[in-house]
Design a protein around this nucleic acid. Sequence first.
DNA 1: TCCTGAGTCGATCAAAAGGTGGAGAGTGCG
DNA 2: CGCACTCTCCACCTTTTGATCGACTCAGGA
Lengths: 214, 214
Amino acid sequence: MESIRVLVVEDHHVVRQGLVALLNVVDGLEVVGEAADGVEAIAQIRKHQPDVTLIDLRLPRLSGVEVIQRIRMENPPSRFIVLTTYDGDEDIYRALQAGARAYLLKGMTTEELIATIRTVHAGKSHIPPAIAQRLAERMGTEELTPRESDVLEQIVHGKSNKEIATELDISEATVKTHINSLLGKLGVTDRTQAATAAIQRGLVTLESLRKPKQ
Amino acid sequence: MESIRVLVVEDHHVVRQGLVALLNVVDGLEVVGEAADGVEAIAQIRKHQPDVTLIDLRLPRLSGVEVIQRIRMENPPSRFIVLTTYDGDEDIYRALQAGARAYLLKGMTTEELIATIRTVHAGKSHIPPAIAQRLAERMGTEELTPRESDVLEQIVHGKSNKEIATELDISEATVKTHINSLLGKLGVTDRTQAATAAIQRGLVTLESLRKPKQ
DNA sequence: TCCTGAGTCGATCAAAAGGTGGAGAGTGCG
DNA sequence: CGCACTCTCCACCTTTTGATCGACTCAGGA
């Protein structure tokens, strides 16, 4: 019988090694390649045409979501299992939208990992109940408009309404309008809750907090 | 020549396997044990008396910092290398205070890992420049009092001053006093900045945001 | 004992934030 | 074209927040 051909995409060296080491001793699985960033991942997928790709979402150069989107456009049969430590809901959401078939946390057991690879290879999906639930909750919520997202980002960065107005080159009244709207959509009552909700959901990355620009 | 005896403490299965697999092929290193949580870690350290312990800070049952503290009290020669994906500054700070000799990010290369193990085994310390810098910045900042920390936690949870007063059973005036004080200590100007700063520095965990209590 | 730091509270005031309603301009779509 | 949506802005109002005084208690250390 044919082995399932697996590609591992993960930037953390130690984790990647761990995955490869784990998978290589399993019968019926074969690791055909590794990649440490998004660009490399695309090259490897094109080259090896793996049955299943294990992919981290946080990757240098090109995010996991982008990799999935690009590959899905050119080669439908490729299947993705998203692997992450634990970020926000937003990433999960986008990855599944992009066409990932499964989502695994890095705390999983070896058995879960292997079972999921087999499930996905068989053409089925696998979403942990805890994640499925949060995803369902998210479904009911409205999307923020681009401008509202801009404002939210500024809020997370600790800007006052006046500062946001200056930054985005609009009036303070408009800032208030957007805030009022986004508070409602996020289901919160003030900017502090909006900020923590945004961080929690992965709408804004924690890294971006450290650096003032980009 | 004798091998350096290493213990690996890490709850994420995949990462632990990766570390063990990496270390076992290195000459002069020997992995004498593994542990997946803090309690197990203490048992293993007592049993195997490793030269160097690689330890994650986020562990079930007993945190990495607590493990280091307890072991340091009973057996001075044990040496610790803290390993983490990337949390806040606060954890790094406490781990180093507790007696850790080095701090490594999971994105490190195999070479860095091995070199650090050798360095630490030789009795020296190894702190990456980026972390050393942030640590230095932190030194200048004042510590929050226990009560201020309570208030900050409530702020991060999106509570208003009135709600905080009720929650902590003090008057709103007192809440304001504490907030005024902690804003100064954190070097920020409003509660939203305080909230993001707290999350960033690891003063409050993101997990605690999801669950209302505990 | 005196002093310090922490915690508590009050009053007052200015600034910021949030809530509501309305309203015009632009875009894209059926 | 008409409709929906977004973005923009204004006015008015209430509530919240933050800043700055001062003051009392309590515990612990010099």
